[in-house]
């Protein structure tokens, strides 16, 4: 495993730890989009379907279990925890899952590598992951008060796929020269969606100001 890949995975893991920390320590999920979190559950469930069928490494299986477990745990907190669920911005988190899930699924049916069950779901998970942050970004735009943990959570979550892009470039030159359009383009779009957020996050960090996104 190269350094970009490891850094990407660790950034992803750290973002989740940070979010769970925020929820557990402050007993609040204010500013967090349940829509985005539910989309991540769908992403992980459709991508890691092969978890018990094919084994690659202990690291790999462990990370998959962690991503599946934590994403479901976060959704549980936001939906069912008696204190946390009351802090959820129900009225502002208005993005409809359906408008992301359906087009991604149709696209996976049309654009894929092999027409098999596992392959279609894997492709669907990449398409869906690339846009899953949209409800969260829309919610942040509506929020006048974005706390540090939420801002940093979104920043790390965006940085993770960006680091994967470097990992793919690295692997392209060191392992085998084969073009993998589906993950590359999805990852590129995923990272590009964060561009605006990155700009405002870094600017607020440099100026030591509170993060605010223009509506």
């Amino acid at each position: 495993m190269n350094a970009f890949r490891l850094a990407g995975d660790m950034t992803h893991l750290l973002s989740i730890i940070l979010l769970l920390l925020k929820i557990r320590a402050t007993k609040s999920c204010a500013g967090i989009s349940l829509k985005t979190q539910e989309l991540y559950v769908i992403v992980f469930m459709s991508r890691y379907l092969d978890l018990f069928r094919t084994y690659y490494s202990l690291y790999n299986s462990l990370m998959k279990i962690i991503f599946l477990g934590t994403s479901m745990c976060i959704v549980w907190y936001m939906r069912s925890h008696k204190v946390v669920r009351q802090t959820y911005n129900n009225d502002e988190d208005t993005f409809r899952h359906f408008f992301l899930v359906l087009p991604c699924f149709v696209l996976a049916l049309l654009v894929h590598r092999n027409f098999t069950f596992i392959e279609i779901l894997w492709t669907f998970s990449l398409y869906l992951e690339s846009v899953a942050i949209l409800p969260q970004l829309v919610l942040l735009q509506k929020s006048s008060n974005i706390d540090n943990l939420t801002g940093t959570y979104v920043f790390l979550l965006g940085a993770y796929r960006g680091l994967y892009l470097f990992n793919w470039v690295y692997r392209f030159f060191t392992e085998n020269h084969r073009v993998r359009w589906i993950p590359w383009l999805s990852g590129l779009i995923q990272t590009a969606i964060y561009t605006d957020f990155f700009y405002y996050y870094i600017r607020s960090w440099k100026n030591r100001e509170k993060l605010k996104l223009p509506a």
Partner: peptide, 10 residues
């Protein structure tokens, strides 16, 4: 090959 990437990436 293709499958190797798919299995070892997250």
């Amino acid at each position: 090959s293709h499958d190797k990437f798919k299995k070892d990436e997250l």
